[in-house]
């Protein structure tokens, strides 16, 4: 019983440790933790992935301590604005809607989305006409959900709190396709899944300029510092080293926009 009390006492104490003075600079970094290979929580509880490595490299350049925490995707921007952490490295696509709530760095990669379908579903291409009547899954609050909403009105759209849950439903055959980051889907398929395959081309949502690191609107000073550090790691080769750890190909190449693809 005693040790239980200690655990709860510890958790309370930890919550108060956030009261840090400004002198020994510690920055709190937020991410989702359910978006492999960019950010996920490992078996020993560590937060890891491409985003985390990029964030840590930036912190190393800035010579500050970084403290990571994970947050529910649907509430991650409000959590940033409520000062639960100082900046967010979470593969968040820069969109005009989000720019009304937060500010971003320059893009640190281009997170194109692509459809993945059940092998049983016969399709040569993924276009609004060919997906008519099929059930498509996406993550709630993600840019892919917005694309489905704007372009695929004749399909049945199902939104999930986490991407992993949409993929589980795809594997079980409840839904026919999922629209999400091609890298996240690729990582999932490399994990021994043989139900599914990519279909159609990859694309960006109109108005997005890739994934950026986000800050509160009144934190332009930190944004400038991080942006500079990001440029440093891109120029000195650190970025490429991290990228090679996760991807064998260039992720800075910019794919076409959804409107170019479907408006022909």
């Amino acid at each position: 019983m005693k040790s239980l009390f200690r655990i709860s006492a510890l958790s309370v104490a930890m919550s108060l440790s956030g009261l840090a003075s400004a002198t020994a600079e510690t920055l709190r970094v937020g991410t989702e933790g359910a978006y492999a290979p960019f950010n996920s929580v490992s078996q020993d509880g560590a937060i890891e992935g491409f985003d985390v490595d990029i964030g840590n490299a930036i912190c190393a350049v800035m010579e500050v301590e970084c403290e990571w925490s994970v947050h529910d995707w649907g509430g991650i921007i409000p959590a940033l604005n409520a000062n639960k952490f100082d900046f967010m490295v979470a593969s968040m696509a820069i969109t005009p809607a989000r720019q009304k709530a937060v500010i971003f760095t320059d893009p640190y990669y281009y997170n194109a989305m692509r459809f993945v379908k059940l092998k049983d579903v016969e399709l040569d291409d993924a276009k609004p006409e060919t997906l008519k009547g099929l059930t498509i899954g996406a993550q709630q609050g993600a840019v892919s959900a917005k694309v489905l909403d704007d372009w695929f009105a004749d399909s049945d759209i199902k939104l999930f709190p986490k991407l992993g849950e949409a993929l589980m439903d795809l594997e079980s055959g409840r839904i026919d396709l999922v629209l999400a980051s091609q890298f996240a889907i690729g990582d999932w398929m490399n994990d021994g899944v043989d139900c599914c395959e990519f279909v159609g081309e990859s694309f960006l949502m109109d108005g997005t300029v890739g994934a950026g690191i986000a800050f509160r609107k009144d934190d332009a000073e930190l944004q400038a510092r991080v942006n500079k550090a990001l440029k440093t790691i891109m120029d000195n080769g650190t970025y490429d080293e991290i990228r090679k750890k996760y991807f064998e190909f260039d992720i800075m190449s910019k794919p076409g926009y959804v409107s170019e693809l479907f408006n022909q």
Binding site: W73, G74, G75, I77, P78, N81, A97, A101, Q140, G141, K158, L159, F160, P161, D169
Partner: peptide, 17 residues
């Protein structure tokens, strides 16, 4: 994925912050 009152609220929240 069943969008009751709370589900709609969470959806609107994730769009409007």
């Amino acid at each position: 994925t069943v969008f009751d009152l709370m589900g709609q609220a969470r959806m609107i929240f994730s769009e409007t912050f």
